[in-house]
Structure formats: structure tokens, C-alpha cells
Write a protein that binds this DNA or RNA. Structure first.
Lengths: 127, 127
DNA sequence: TCGTAATATGCGCATGTGCGCATATGGTTT
DNA sequence: AAACCATATGCGCACATGCGCATATTACGA
């Protein structure tokens, strides 16, 4: 009984990570290839402070993995299933949004299917 | 470009609905059978005010459907895909929680698969 | 019609959250 | 060592959110 309370709490916490546009943009940026903080900052056009904070939150939430290389820190998706879930919801809300505007196209271009986990490591970049 | 901003916003809004334990409990209660507000209140042991507010939010968010019958209002899942998504995330976090406690069992019992859209019509009041 | 049950909502409070500014921390280069 | 990059974090502010209390609204039965 009270046991399931903890489950609902954990489940809610997981969804809470995904309940912020900036964090979803980060997921979108990172779902294909690992990226450093500054790369994400540039791609999203947000401040370093804000991105860093969101990245920390997503990492603590178990959504992103962290890899430190020199002074840069690279983040990548911890689980491809999370991107799948985003895609599911995307296609689910596509119809609703489409009723107002032709956004289905934009939706489908988001959260593209993963191909490979490319690492900007020295030599190898494939996997 | 700016077009996708709206998509991320909508996606985040969708996840925000699921980012609250009480709302997830409601989803769990309603994912099998349609239920009235007072039934949900009793099952969750929460106040009527709070449940009603959450139900309104979930309905406006497109997650629940509303059906009025007399003075009662019945709510049910608008889309079985939402329950599927909850189940996905449940099984995803099962491992993480299991590392701390044996909660996998509790997780698996949550959000059971839907069988039929049973309506609490006049006579039947099963369970 | 009046009382009662079922549901929704205005108000206020406590707490959570996103953000920017300034600054700290750690690594790299000269 | 010093200057410089990349990233993280303390602080404060504006705003959102969950909740309960009281009350409004609607439907139904006596």
C-alpha cells in the first residue's frame, strides 16, 4: 500500500524531469550524439548557467550520463527508451496540435531515431 | 525554428500532467474503468477539493475524458497510450528502485493492462 | 420548494521552480 | 605562477503549484 506511494513518487519525479521545454530541447540535442555543455549552450542559445543547472538535474534524475574529458563535460542519453517515450508522446499530441496548426511535420522531425552513440573521442567516432 | 518551440512547450505540458503523484494515482485508478469523482476520492483517500482540481487539470490537459450522468461526473482515460507510457517508465525505473528495495513487484502491479472500457452503468457496480 | 448530495472554484498560504548575476572550482596554456 | 577557458553553484527574485477552507453551482429527492 504505502509501498506504492514511493513508486508513484519516483514515477512522478521521472516525468517531472521531462516537464520543462528547455530540458526537452536538451534531450533532443543529445539524443543522437553526445555533446559538451558549451556545445549545448550554443545550440540552444541559452545561458551557460541555466543549461548547466538543467544538465545537473537531468543527470541526477538518471536521464543523462556524464563523461568528463579535460575541462569539458560531455552529456549523453542514459537510456534510449526515454527518447522513445518522448517520441510516443510527440506523435500522440501531433493530432491535437494539428487541429490548430500544421505542426505534425515539425513534431516528426523532433527526437529522431537514434542511429549510433557517436563520441567526440580522439579517433573513433562510430560505434 | 520558433515553430518547434511550441512543440516542446506542448510536450512539456503533457509530461507536466504526469509529474504529480496524486495525478498518477488517479491515472492508475481510472486506467481500467471509468470512475466518478467521489469514487476516486474514496479510493485515494484524498480530499474532494484536491481530487476535483487534479481531475479538471487532467481533463483540460487532454488526458482524461469527462462524462456527466446526473449529478455525478465520470472520468476515464482519453488515450490508452498514456497508460502505456506510464507502464514503460515504470518498468524503466524498476531496476533503479530495485537496487535499493524490492519494489519491482509493486511496480508491476501498477497500471495494469486495459481489458475493456467498462461503464458503471445503472446496475453494475463491481468492485 | 427546500434540503441534501456531488462537483467545482475563489482565496490564501507554503513550497517548489526557472532564471540571471556574480562567483567558485577545476583544467589548460603560456 | 598567472591568465584564461569550461563548468558548477550560492543567492535572490518572480512566478507557478499543491493544498485546505469555505463557498458557489448544479442535480436530485422528499
Amino acid at each position: 500500500m504505502n509501498n506504492s506511494d514511493e513508486v508513484f513518487e519516483a514515477l512522478a519525479a521521472c516525468f517531472r524531469v521531462l516537464s520543462e521545454p528547455t530540458r526537452l530541447k536538451i534531450m533532443h540535442a543529445v539524443c543522437e550524439k553526445e555533446m559538451s555543455v558549451s556545445q549545448i549552450v550554443e545550440e540552444l542559445g541559452a545561458t551557460q548557467t541555466n543549461i548547466s543547472r538543467h544538465l545537473g538535474l537531468m543527470h541526477r534524475g538518471g536521464v543523462l550520463l556524464r563523461r568528463k574529458q579535460g575541462s569539458q563535460v560531455y552529456y549523453r542519453l542514459a537510456d534510449a527508451a526515454m527518447a522513445d517515450i518522448c517520441r510516443s508522446v510527440c506523435s500522440r499530441i501531433a493530432g491535437q496540435l494539428d487541429a490548430r496548426q500544421p505542426l505534425r511535420g515539425a513534431l516528426m522531425k523532433l527526437m529522431p531515431r537514434k542511429r549510433a552513440a557517436a563520441r567526440p573521442a580522439p579517433s573513433r567516432a562510430a560505434r
